[in-house]
Simulated scan of single mutants.
Amino acid sequence: MVDQAAHQLFSYGTLQLPEVQLDRFGRLLEGRSDALPGFRLTYVTITDPEVIAASGTDRHPLVIASSQDGDAVEGSVFAITDAELAAADDYEVDDYARTEVVLRSGAKAWAYLAATAQDSAAS
């Protein structure tokens, strides 16, 4: 399946958990460490029972933009297929928006960022 990988996905949260990967993708993903500069971690309370069941918690990390020099969110980059990207989209609740980011390594990847960042910018 990895031979068909078409996307790079940066995860800083529950998509790194083996139980979530098995539930969503039917396999364990092999990742490499990287970081998302210019962001910091916060947390959101999830209410979707399917997501809570897969992750084992209703408290999920969420990244938001940071104005502090040197802030970065550590995580893992996974090579995934189109179908796995769709499964990740299905897993993530409305608090998250899939966005293309540039990581510390210079690699481009998809990441799920705070959806409210755009909402609050429009307010």
Rank of each mutant, 00 (worst) to 15 (best):
V2R: 11
Q4E: 15
Q8Y: 12
Y12W: 06
Q16L: 13
L17A: 12
L17D: 06
E19G: 09
E19M: 13
E19Q: 15
L22M: 15
D23N: 11
F25E: 05
G26L: 01
R27V: 00
E30N: 15
R32T: 09
D34M: 14
D34V: 10
D34C: 12
A35Q: 05
A35W: 03
A35Y: 02
A35S: 13
P37C: 00
P37G: 01
F39Y: 11
R40E: 15
T42I: 13
T42L: 13
Y43D: 13
Y43L: 07
T45W: 08
I46A: 04
D48L: 11
D48N: 15
P49N: 12
E50D: 08
A54P: 08
D58F: 05
R59H: 12
H60R: 01
P61V: 07
I64D: 00
I64V: 15
A65T: 02
S67F: 05
S67D: 10
D71I: 01
E74A: 14
V77N: 02
V77G: 03
A79H: 12
D82Y: 12
A83D: 05
A86E: 15
A88G: 06
A88R: 04
Y91D: 02
V93K: 01
D94Y: 03
Y96F: 13
A97C: 11
A97Q: 12
V101Q: 06
R104E: 15
G106E: 13
A107G: 10
K108T: 00
K108M: 03
A109L: 14
A109Y: 10
A109H: 08
W110G: 07
A111W: 02
A111F: 07
A111I: 07
Y112P: 01
L113K: 06
Q118C: 03
Q118H: 06
D119A: 14
S120G: 00
A122T: 12
